[in-house]
Write a protein that binds this DNA or RNA. Structure first.
Lengths: 272, 272
DNA sequence: CGCGAGGTTGATTACTCTCAAACGACGTGG
DNA sequence: CCACGTCGTTTGAGAGTAATCAACCTCGCG
C-alpha cells in the first residue's frame, strides 16, 4: 500500500532550501507536508504498488465495472475477465496520479473519492478541466495504439481508490468488445462539447458569471453541499483565489450560498 | 447548385429595417450582401442541393478520400463504395454549413476552401475553435448512434467544396471498417488535447501572447501568408477586433509581420 | 460616386489581477 | 496543553489590462 507513514518525522532545513521548497510547492499547488511525505514515500516504495485483486475485492470490482457507463452492457463473463486483471490503487489526498507528458500505461476508473483533471501553464497557473468521481474514467488515452503522451495531469483531491487496468490488458479487452470503444468515442465527443462550452464561457463571461456557472454545474452533479475550497473553485473558473472569495462572499450576502471552511452550501441553485 | 445569382439586385429598405439588418449581420459576423444573398438563395432553392457524384468527379472524390488521414489505409474497393454515396456540396463565402443545435445528419470532409468551427455565446461573441481545410473532417458526431445535437457551428470562410456523406451511409461504412472508427477516436483525443491547450492559454496568457500563439499555430499549418482578417484572428484569440489590431500593429512595428488588407504575412515565426 | 467592410487610433471605463496584511481553525511538535 | 506553522479565508489598496465607445480612414466594388 502507498500511504503517508503514520510516524512523524522531523526535518530541519537550511533557510535557502526551505525557501526553494516553498516556491516549488506553491508552483505545484501542494502543501509542503504532503509534498515531502510523497517524496519520501516515492523514494522508499517507488511507484504506488498495485494491489492484486483479492477474492473479497473481486465482487466489489465487478460492481464498480457495472456502474461505469462505458461498460454497462458488457456481459458478465467479460467483466469477470476484466476484473481479474484489474487492481485497486489507493492515492492519498493531493497525490498525483498522472502527470502531463507521461506515456500512458494504464486505463483508470475512479472507485472512491474524487480526482481532478487539470493542466498547468508554464507560469504555474492551474486550470481544473474536470472533476471525476466513482464510475468515471480517465487515462482512456492508453486505449489508443499510437504513441502519444498524457496531455493533462490527474491528482486525487481527497483519499481516493482508483481501479487500474494496464494498457495491454485494456487494449485486449476493447479488441474483444468493440462496443466499449464506441462508447468511449461517444464519451469523448460529449467531453468535447463540454470543453467548447468552457471555452466560450471563458471568452465571453465575466469572472462572477464564470464562478456562478461552475457552482451551478457542481451543484447539478454533486448536490448542494460542495466539498471544494475557494482555490479549487477559482481554478475551475479561471480566476484567482481572491477574486473568487470576493464573488463567493457577494453571493453569500445575496443569500444564495452558505460558506464554511473547505466547503460550501448552495441554497438557491436557480439564482446562480 | 447553390450560388449567389450573378444578376445584381438593388433593394431599398426603410431606415429601421436597414438598422435591424445591420445589427443582425454584426451579431452573426457576416456582411449584409452575403446575408441577403444567402437569404434569397435559401428562399428560392431551399437547403443546398446535393450534387450527385458524376463519373468525372468520382476519381476526384477518391483522391480526396485518400488524402483524409482517417481513411488513408482503407482498401480501394471500400473507398469506391464510399465515393458512390458521397456528394460534393458547394458553399459560398460566409455561408453556414452546420448550426449549433441541429441534429447531425451527415459526415463531412473539406474538399476545397476553408471552414471555421465556432461557437457563439448568448451575448453574440463568437469564438473560433478551429479552422479546417482539405482532407479535414467535421460533423463526425453523426457517426454516433446516440441522439445528440451539434455543439458547435461550422461556416465556410471562403468559397468551399465539402464532401458530404449521409449519416446512414457513414454509419454503414464505419460498421464495416472498424479501424476508421478507431482513427476517429484517436483524432478526437488529439483535438481534446488542443482544446486543453486553448483553455490554459485563455486563463493564463495576456491578449498579446494569445494572438502570438494563434499566429504561430496558423503559420505552422498554413505557411507564412495568412488569409485571415483581424476580426477572425480576434475570434481565434478570444479578444476584440480593436485589441487584435493594436497587437498586430505592434508586431508589425517590431518587424515580425507585414499587414495587408484581409491578409498578413509572418516574417519571423520564431519571434512570436 | 457612395457604400460597406476592414482597419486604425484615441479616450475612457471597468474589471480583475497583484500585492499585502491579517484572522480563525486546525493539527502537530514540543 | 500550549506555541507554532499552515491552510483557508477575508479584505483593502493600487496597478495594469483590455473592453467599450467613438471617430475616422481607405480600399474595393457596384
Amino acid at each position: 500500500m502507498f500511504e503517508i507513514p503514520d510516524k512523524q518525522i522531523h526535518i530541519r532545513l537550511s533557510a535557502h532550501i526551505s525557501k526553494k521548497l516553498k516556491v516549488k510547492c506553491a508552483a505545484e499547488s501542494t502543501s509542503m507536508q504532503i509534498f515531502v511525505a510523497n517524496l519520501i514515500a516515492d523514494k522508499i516504495q517507488g511507484s504506488p504498488k498495485k494491489q492484486p485483486a483479492e477474492k473479497s475485492q473481486k465482487a466489489a470490482i465487478i460492481e464498480l465495472l457495472h456502474e461505469c457507463p462505458i461498460l454497462c452492457d458488457v456481459d458478465e463473463i467479460e467483466l469477470g475477465n476484466l476484473a481479474e486483471v484489474a487492481s485497486i490503487v489507493h492515492y492519498t489526498k493531493s497525490q498525483p496520479i498522472i502527470r502531463e507528458g507521461e506515456v500512458p500505461d494504464s486505463f483508470q476508473i475512479v472507485a472512491q473519492g474524487l480526482v481532478k483533471v487539470y493542466k498547468a501553464s508554464p507560469s504555474g497557473k492551474e486550470f481544473i478541466i474536470d472533476i471525476r468521481r466513482r464510475g468515471e474514467i480517465f487515462g482512456e488515452i492508453s486505449a489508443m495504439d499510437e504513441v502519444i503522451v498524457h496531455y493533462a495531469s490527474v491528482q486525487a483531491i481527497e483519499e481516493t481508490d482508483v481501479l487500474t487496468i494496464s494498457k495491454k490488458d485494456f487494449v485486449t479487452f476493447t479488441a474483444q468488445n468493440p462496443k466499449v470503444m464506441a462508447r468511449i468515442t461517444s464519451l469523448e465527443m460529449l467531453r468535447i462539447s463540454h470543453l467548447y462550452s468552457k471555452l466560450i464561457n471563458l471568452v465571453s463571461d465575466k469572472a462572477d458569471q464564470r464562478v456562478a456557472k461552475v457552482l451551478y454545474a457542481l451543484t447539478c452533479k454533486y448536490g448542494s453541499n460542495l466539498q471544494f475550497t475557494h482555490k479549487e473553485i477559482a481554478e475551475m473558473s479561471g480566476t484567482t483565489d481572491e477574486t473568487t472569495t470576493r464573488i463567493l462572499t457577494s453571493l453569500k450576502k445575496k443569500g444564495i450560498l452558505r460558506l464554511h471552511r473547505g466547503n460550501l452550501e448552495v441554497l438557491d441553485k436557480s439564482k446562480l
